[in-house]
Amino acid sequence: MLGIPENAFIAMLAVLGVLVIATVIQFILRLKRPDIDYRELTQRIVSWWWIIGLLFLFLTIGTTAAIVFFAFLSFLSLKEFISIVPTRQADRNAVFWVYLSIPFQYYWVTTGWYGMFIIFIPVFIFLLIPVRMVLKGETDGFIKSAGVLHWAAMLTIFSVSHVAYLLVLPEKQVMAGGVGLVLFLLIMTQFNDVSQYVWGKLLGKHKIIPKVSPNKTWQGFVGGMFTIMLVASIVSPHLTPLNQVEGLIAGILISVSGFFGDVVISSVKRDLHIKDSGNLIPGHGGILDRMDSLIYTAPIFFHYIYYLYY
């Protein structure tokens, strides 16, 4: 349908179905309990419509359009990250170079040049950032800035570009294609966030890292992981080349890495004494607040299937 492989198209319809149900429930809640303020819930759902609407639109237009979309997400994430962490006035040029690496990194993706894609930021940008800083000549705070800038590039450009690279991998599951891989990763990552939250609310007792995230409990974590294992093993043969057992392991990997992505970005915010990283997405906070788990799940899932099938 619309040039999208059949299984991927069904997955999109399922996501839209969930969104419609959430919207209807929200309307009923507002009608039944007018005394409770549901504004944040409403904002969140409206924002979800925007996020999913834009994502599906670009996935439908085509591979290049979708890659440009992910490049833009990298740009927004990098901007948000670099704005909340301390950088020096002298780092402006080096920061600009990090921005410039976005079109290059995503260009390697469009051409499917895997070797360059995989070393460009970890090797070349890693070496180049301090070079640009040296040319500026400000040595006070040099170490910290070099570290912050490369970390920013790794998190917001290198990690996120793995989602885009899924689109150009050779098709091993013809019924779903690259779009199927992207949808599998995004849906599992998001569903893991939700189910860890729900299990935590239902049974949560023992906190994992109370200093970083008081809402994360062992019960939520384990409950979420079992849920994702189950769902991933059922869905993976339809959306990915993985069989049921491999899908189950993918579920574990996504669940664990998603958890850590979440708490790593939480730690960044704790360190800076802020609650949200921005207010780009009404009801959600900043874009990093939404991308946190994906930053960890994307490379882990990518290299798992890359090792097994490519």
Partner: peptide
Amino acid sequence: HGLGRALPRGEALLVPFNC
């Protein structure tokens, strides 16, 4: 706050920052 990082006085290069 933050605009002095994006485009300070005497600089021609605009670097994106949230403000």
